[in-house]
């Protein structure tokens, strides 16, 4: 064992080997929504900071989020937040050692996806209801 040259070792099979599955896609979505939420945190801090600065600056930021583009960003943020939160709850179930049967995994990831869409719609229905 004195050779210092690293041997070319076989790599374990990676993503492209496997047929895409919902559970795999949802795992990737958990990470993507997490990174998206990190970007969204800049928006949240921007909003709070604007309120602490001046009326004009706060109106500017409120105006940005009121604009259709700002609303689209907020809608995406809402969905990412709900998706990541439900994904986290799913991981808590797995942390207890439960829910690893294939049928349960499939059920959990479907509930995660459908639940995130339903909660997002619910939040926006309430949001529009409060404003009207």
């Amino acid at each position: 064992m004195s050779g210092s040259k690293p041997k070319a070792r076989p790599l374990s099979p990676h993503l492209q080997i496997y047929r895409p599955m919902l559970s795999m896609t949802m795992s990737i979505m958990h990470r993507i929504t997490g990174v998206g939420l990190a970007v969204g945190m800049i928006g949240l801090v921007w909003w709070l900071t604007a309120a602490s600065i001046s009326d004009g600056y706060f109106d500017l930021v409120q105006g940005f989020f009121y604009h259709w583009f700002g609303r689209l960003v907020l809608f995406g943020f809402t969905w990412a937040l709900m998706h990541h939160m439900l994904g986290g709850l799913r991981h808590f179930i797995w942390d207890t050692g439960r829910g690893f049967e294939l049928t349960t995994v499939e059920w959990l990831v479907r509930a995660n996806l459908i639940g995130s869409v339903l909660l997002t719609i619910l939040i926006w229905v309430i949001g529009y209801g409060v404003r009207a």
């Binding site: 309120a51 001046s54 009326d55 706060f58 109106d59 409120q62 009121y66 939040i123 309430i126 949001g127 409060v130 404003r131």
Partner: peptide, 8 residues
């Protein structure tokens, strides 16, 4: 939600 369209 409670500060949608709120004034400063």
């Amino acid at each position: 939600i409670s500060h949608v369209g709120s004034t400063r």
